[in-house]
Amino acid sequence: MSATSFTFEWFFLGAAVVAAAAYVWFAREDRPEPWRAGSFALGIVLIAGSLNSPLETIAVKRLLLIHLLQNALIADIAPLFLLLGLTPRMRRALPHVRARYALPAWLVAWYATHAANVYDYALRNSWPLQVEHAVLILGGLLFWWPLVSGRLSSPAALAYLGVGFVASSFLGLALIFSTRVIYSYYEHTPRLWGLSPVRDQNLGGILMNGEQTLVFLCAIGFYVWRLLSEEGAAEASSQS
């Protein structure tokens, strides 16, 4: 199979259609601002697009690097856009998840799905791979929900993000520093761009670490800015 061929994970294509239809249904009464609708659409496209395109072909048949890119898109970035796309009324309809449960659950999902045996098994069989991707998406939604739901104060959000950033960084570091192939499945796949399995893995770790650094530092920057604004407002009201 050519690297540019399309491969499909039909479940996620179907789930994307259902999610989009549900959003349109709820949006009839609770009209979202254009940026919210755009954010939700982007989240849908990132999930459906990355799992149903040549990206999927390369991820499953050739390179770990692209598989990790796919995982970063569906686990870190797409869930955030999906949740940001919800209107306040839609958010109220969702259950409240405490940060103290969401963070460990996300970390378990992150590390368990990337454990060598689990990862190799999922790649060699079709449905476990889809389960892995579903766990990553649900884990991402669970992680971002306490933040996007607005139930965390700025200091609590900063602590939550700080712990999440540090705790999730070990996987990327392990992939960067490993000199032997962790995922044996990729030892036997045809190579692309002249990357050896170990170099592919190291680059995958770099991509994962770089992406997480960027996403987390942006989120931390947002909450630091919010903390400064709140302190400025409190100071102004105390002076008046």
């Binding site: 200091p155 900063l158 630091v224 903390l227 400064l228 302190e231 100071e235």
Partner: peptide, 8 residues
Amino acid sequence: RAVGLRVA
């Protein structure tokens, strides 16, 4: 100094 400034 304010906590926010130091955290920033």
